[in-house]
């Protein structure tokens, strides 16, 4: 999976990332944050559009900037960067809407073989985590980097 992706900026701890989507609707800054949760070593991954005038973030915005695959590839690359720095962390993610969760599931499914080479991947269904499988609708996703030392 070597998809085109955007140049990333981050602060020192690699928990906040920023990149700029570039397409027919113009330049749209996006922010990604890995937030601590109540469970040790488990981080919530969320991202959204940054409003340049107010600085507010919107994870419900539909940018339609024609680059959704590049945006998702960029978000996935932050998961690699984050899990390089925090290799024992779990990363939890779900969409802001059911449609968006389904979109993420489709993206994961498309590159499942590649993803599962580097991560243990789970899907949440009926209040249980199960190993992610193609064709099953999940409410959320959980990933943990496999214990390989260095991945190119």
């Amino acid at each position: 999976m070597q998809l085109d992706r955007y140049q990333l900026k981050a602060e020192e701890s690699l928990t906040v990332f920023e990149f700029t989507s570039n397409g027919p609707k113009g330049q749209i800054p996006k922010l990604i944050k890995f937030s601590e949760t109540n469970l040790k070593d488990l981080y919530n991954l969320a991202f959204g559009d940054k409003d340049l005038t107010t600085g507010d973030l919107n994870d419900l915005a539909i940018s339609n900037n024609g680059d959704s695959e590049k945006v998702l590839a960029t978000v996935v690359s932050t998961v690699y960067a984050f899990s390089d720095k925090y290799p024992n962390s779990f990363i939890y993610a779900t969409g802001s809407t059911k449609a968006r969760t389904r979109l993420y599931r489709m993206g994961i499914t498309k590159y499942l073989n590649e993803i599962t080479r580097d991560f243990d991947l789970y899907g949440l269904r009926s209040d249980e985590w199960e190993i992610f499988e193609k064709g099953i609708e999940y409410e959320a996703f959980l990933a943990k980097r496999k214990n390989s030392n260095f991945i190119l």
Binding site: E12, F17, F47, I151
Partner: peptide, 28 residues
Amino acid sequence: KTPVVVIDDSLEKYKDLPLFQEKVDKAN
């Protein structure tokens, strides 16, 4: 697979802000 990341100190301000807090609450 691991991207080249440019460190930008201006992003530090977001580190301790409760961004996407509704999603974090739902996750918790």
